[in-house]
Structures are given as C-alpha cells and as structure tokens.
Design a protein around this nucleic acid. Structure first.
Lengths: 191, 191
DNA sequence: ATGCAACTATACCGATCGGTCTGGTAAAGT
DNA sequence: ACTTTACCAGACCGATCGGTATAGTTGCAT
C-alpha cells in the first residue's frame, strides 16, 4: 500500500531535487553543471527554470530539502524516554553509519557555505540548521540551548563530521561521541 | 636592514602565489579564474604556465605554502617552557585573532578538499597537514600522538574553526579552548 | 655582443557555463 | 472544442572557463 503523500510518478521538480541532491553530494555544487542535473533527472532544461529561478535557487531548495530531511530523521529516531547519553550516542552513530555506507560527504550546509561564500540565501538556511542543531542537542542532553554544555556538544558534532570528511577515521567519531557522553553525564550528575 | 631571504622585487611566481592566496581565501578556489589571478598579480598569463603546470598545480602550491606558513607560525610562537594549558590556549587564540582581524576564511585544507573533491594531490597535502597538526597538539599537551587526548584536541581544534566559519561566534572558540585546557589539565594531574 | 631565460602583453582556442527560446506533445479544466 | 498547464527535446545565446600561441622586451651570463 502506497502512502498518499508519495506519488507513483515523481514530478519534474521532485526528480530535479533528487538528482541535484546526489550530484551535489558526490561532486560538489560548483563542478555540477545545469546540463548534467537535467540529464540525470530525465527532465527538460525548461522544466528546471519553470520550477526554479536559477541554479542558486535550486541550491537553496536543495539545502531546505536537506534541512527537512534532517529534522524528520532526528524526530523519527530520537526516543525522548531513553537515557540522555544514549540519545547523544545516537547522533554520532548516525554519522558513523553514513560513513560506513559511503553516503557521507560532509555537512551539506558547511560545504555549501564554502562553495558559495557570497550567497546570502545559503547562509540563511545554514544558520537555520545550526540553530535547530543546537536546540536538538540541548534538548536531548537536558541542557539549556544557551548553555556551555550545548555549545560543547555542537562543537563535538561539527568536529566528528569534519574528522569523518578529512581523515581515514581512526575512531575519531567514537572519540567525539565518548567525550560528548562524558560531558552530559558530568552535567547530569552535577545537577 | 633587509633579510637576505626576502627579495626587494618578488618574482612572478611569488606574486602569483601571493595573489592566489588572497583570492582563494576571499572568493574560494573554483570561483577564482585564472585571468583574475594573473591580473591581480600584475603578471603575464604565460608566466603562470611557466611556473605551474595547471591551475590545479597552482592550488597545490598554494596549499603547500599555507602548510609552510602554519609550521613556521607554530614553531615561532610556541614556547616549549610554558605551561601546557597556556600552549594549548595559544592555538585557539590564534583562531580568535584571525577572526577579529577579518583574515579568517576557515581551514584552507578543508576548504580545498570540499571545493576539489576529485583532486588527489589536494588530499595528500591536507593529510600531511592533519598529521602535523595532531603531532603538534600532542606535543604541546604532553600526550602521545596516537592517544585519545590527542584525538580529542584535534577534534576541538577542527570544531573551533568550523564554529568560527559558520557561526556569528558567541564564544564558541573560547568554549573549545576551555574544554581543551580542561582535558589537558585532567590528563596532566592524572599522570 | 650575443644568446638564452624570464618576462609582458594579447590574441586566440575549444569547451563549458548558466540561461533563453522555439516547437511540439499529452493530459486536465472549462 | 478550446485553452491552459506541464512537460520533453534540443538549438541557441553571450560569457567565461582553463590553456596555448605569437610576438616583443628586458636583463644577465658568457
């Protein structure tokens, strides 16, 4: 039985966003030309510009799609009744799982800011993501979003992603996870 | 009195590397065209290709220059007789100072890996940098390079840079610095 | 003084970029 | 029946890309 929200034949817009996602992840944004996106989506070039004002608009839509996906994922898998340290561990396991399945290409928002440093709209979405990331990490650790602990968890999350992107990963992700859990435990017992 | 190693008139190669550095930092690598580099260096296009085989080779030379500069900087300012936590603090103060002076554009090696994901030579230089970074952080903290503490310090260093790049920086750098110093102190007193 | 190497200046190359335009097809709305 | 909407296919546009070629100049070494 199909979900009513999933059309059996994706629209041109959906196919464009889907192939843009794959290509931006695998090759980066700037090296991925319009023609390639269109061809891989099996869509006419005009359909791209009927749905998006420009390549930049497509990039922003792609980032918003990534943000939506991230929100849905963390809401779907996070168990509010679990131990704080387990909820923290889940976040880092996510990164490790993506690395193992070779579907990890770094943080899409960080990558986009680096690739398009002059695009204000990209910055806006990235800021929105980072605010929500901080809120989520604060929530699952039982800390205030403005707290020092929340800052430190954001730092460790960013760090794990950077390490996964840059290194051959000698347990850096689990190291970040362990330190994060230590911080949360210390904070929990202290309170 | 001039240093013997600094020519009064920089060669074409030196001028090219100097302007490549500025442009790659400010605009990123891919959006910076050859013509712009050449024009800003006040150099003929042929001089670029007399000194570098391709734009990619220029990028690699730029990264090697960045690595050299980083090595010289840390060797110049680090005081082996200082307290461990002070030596750690210096590393993070460096980032904060760069941010304040608006000469901070994120980690050149991370940025280059993101902008040119298919360039193996870029990866090589980036790996070299990361090995030296780990060795340096291990040394100034009195830890083994393969130790858990060294991993954690690398994580926090990366994190501080990412936070500085992505955020409006509400004390994230000093938060990373504080945590790093706490880890080193705990490790020192334990031993 | 002569020859070579390094340099400047600029025209030029094919390829590709983001983006537009034309033209045609198929389904849905009225 | 007619229009509108959404779509595909692909030619086409000017601009820019990385890179080469031509031609002339400067300065140093022998």
């Amino acid at each position: 039985m199909e979900s009513v929200t999933t059309a059996p034949t994706p629209s041109a817009k959906e196919r464009l966003l889907a192939s843009a996602r794959v290509l931006f992840h695998e090759r980066g944004i700037n090296p991925t030309g319009i023609d390639l996106i269109v061809r891989q989506a099996g869509v006419a070039k005009a359909s791209l510009y009927n749905n998006f004002a420009s390549k930049e608009a497509l990039v922003v839509a792609y980032l918003e799609q990534e943000l939506d996906g991230w929100v849905r994922k963390v809401h779907g898998q996070d168990d509010p009744l679990a131990q704080r340290s387990d909820r923290i561990a889940t976040v880092f396991e996510d990164i490790a799982r993506a690395v193992e399945s070779h579907t990890f290409f770094g943080c899409p928002f960080t990558n986009a800011v680096i690739e398009l440093p002059d695009c204000a709209a990209v910055r806006v979405v990235a800021d929105r993501y980072r605010t929500m990331l901080r809120a989520h990490l604060a929530e699952i650790s039982g800390a205030d979003a403005a707290s020092s602990l929340a800052s430190r968890l954001v730092l460790l999350y960013d760090a794990a992603i950077t390490a996964a992107k840059m290194g051959r990963d000698d347990g850096m992700i689990s190291e970040a996870s362990a330190l994060a859990q230590e911080l949360v435990s210390a904070h929990t017992t202290k309170a």
